[in-house]
Nucleic acid binder design. Structure first.
Lengths: 189, 189
DNA sequence: GAACCCCTAGACAGGTCTGTCTGTTCCGGC
DNA sequence: GCCGGAACAGACAGACCTGTCTAGGGGTTC
């Protein structure tokens, strides 16, 4: 088994945090489900918060990689690639156990903007936005920064709406709005 | 003092839930800050969850009333009134103690869609969407339902973005996107 | 003045939480 | 065969949690 105890802990923690939230998921439950002894956890992480941060960092890398790969697999055309974002979101919303964005939920539970967990959430959002901006720059539009922001707002709105009210068709409606915004932005140059 | 003990509890609970979240805010702290005895709380509410629901219901009424009043005070014109939504959001984001939407945060902490608290959040979102739809119908657009959804997505996205990453200018950028979408929708009829 | 009702104050039960500590077992490298 | 590091198992401390219970205080209304 190539998977270290540390990895097992991070993956189990990630799964339980997504299902039940951060504060309501106890250390002991993570240990039980991971099949790991308590002392092992505290050898790898000083506190529960460090485990939360490790789970977020892991998912920051994995989820951005997954999103980027899926978008790039769908099209080379920059417009289609941006729109493919919403197709990928649609799959995510429909997948079993979808409970919204782990980072948004973390920011909700750790509301203090100075909290490292809250900041990890902010960093994640910023980094994905930079990828979107690189795609928007490939379009011939007047203001790629503005278009990036608009698409990001639709994405966040779609994630929250799917989480709170159910997933049915939200991503498709966000995609339609994005199409309109891209077309309107493309009328320049 | 016209304010009943029950109202004091609801208001204190609301304030602390917004600042620190639901699970991390203990009953005893609410009682201390409200200056109310424990037995009084349990005379009015059977459980903590009932208090959470009462705080959400109170804020459901108050916040929608506040938003609607502010939008209607700004303009009679349906287009301007819809866009005023984002000006009101901007004020909210800049206000002291802004920590995102209480309903989104509730849905994050109580992730089970069957949970009454989660459902209260979903109901709130739905009811405000109906008000937006009534405004959109006053515009002469082809598909007011679609426009409503698009504006709602921008609104949710702006709230989450302001919560996670900071408020600076988010509402204004969402407003710009909404202007484009309304104009594009208005080309019909 | 007495019955009534809402409230206060705080002890208490029973459970859960994080994090520490002790002692044992397993396994790879020498 | 033996040594050292890592993991296991689980008791434990100390704090906090929700919700119950008891005992009494202070108005209001008959």
């Amino acid at each position: 088994m190539a998977e270290s105890r540390k990895d097992q802990l991070i993956e189990t923690a990630f799964r339980l945090f997504q299902a039940d939230g951060y504060r309501s998921t106890g250390i002991n439950r993570i240990l039980d489900e991971a099949g790991v002894a308590k002392q092992t956890l505290y050898n790898h992480f000083r506190t529960k918060d460090e485990l939360i941060l490790a789970a977020l960092e892991r998912w920051d890398r994995d989820s951005r990689q997954w999103l980027v790969d899926a978008m790039e697999a769908r099209s080379d055309d920059p417009r289609e690639r941006l729109l493919a974002l919403f197709d990928v979101l649609d799959e995510w919303f429909a997948s079993a156990g979808f409970r919204g964005c782990l980072f948004v939920n973390a920011a909700a539970e750790f509301g203090d903007p100075e909290d490292p967990i809250h900041q990890a959430a902010a960093d994640h959002k910023q980094e994905f936005r930079e990828y979107l901006l690189a795609q928007a720059r490939r379009l011939e539009v007047d203001d790629p920064e503005a278009l990036t922001e608009h698409i990001a707002l639709l994405m966040e709105g779609a994630i929250v709406t799917a989480q709170v009210g159910g997933a049915t068709g939200v991503a498709g409606r966000a995609r339609a709005a994005a199409e309109t915004l891209i077309s309107a932005a493309g009328s320049a140059v």
